[in-house]
Computed example of a mutant assay.
Amino acid sequence: MNYFEAVILAIIEGITEYLPVSSTGHLIIASSFFHIAEDSFTKLFTIVIQFGAILAVLALYFKRFFQSVDFYLKLVVAFIPAVILGLLFNNVIDELLESPIIVAVSLILGGIILLKVDDWFKENEDLSREKKEQTTVSYATALKIGFFQCLAMIPGTSRSGATIIGGMSQKLNRKTAAEFSFFLAVPTMFGATTKKLFDYYRDGFTLNTEQINFLIIGNIVAFIVAMFAIKSFINYLSKSGFKLFGYYRIVLGIAIICIHFFIYRLTL
Rank of each mutant, 00 (worst) to 15 (best):
G86Q: 10
F45I: 00
L58P: 00
L55S: 04
F65N: 08
R64F: 02
L58E: 01
A78Q: 12
I84G: 11
A78E: 03
V76I: 08
F65A: 07
L85Q: 11
A59I: 13
I49R: 04
L87H: 10
G86Y: 11
I80F: 07
A53K: 07
Q67C: 12
L73K: 15
Y72N: 06
G52Q: 00
K63Q: 13
A56G: 08
K74W: 08
S68G: 00
F71V: 05
V57S: 07
F65K: 10
I80E: 07
L88M: 15
S68T: 07
I84S: 12
A82Y: 05
R64Y: 04
V48M: 09
L55T: 00
F71H: 09
K63S: 13
Q50K: 05
I54H: 00
K63V: 10
P81I: 08
A78M: 03
L88W: 14
F79K: 01
N90D: 15
Q67K: 13
F65D: 11
A78N: 12
F62D: 13
V69T: 09
S68L: 09
L60A: 02
L55K: 01
F51S: 05
G86E: 10
I54M: 08
K74C: 03
T46C: 01
A56Q: 10
L87A: 13
F66A: 12
T46M: 08
K63N: 13
G52R: 01
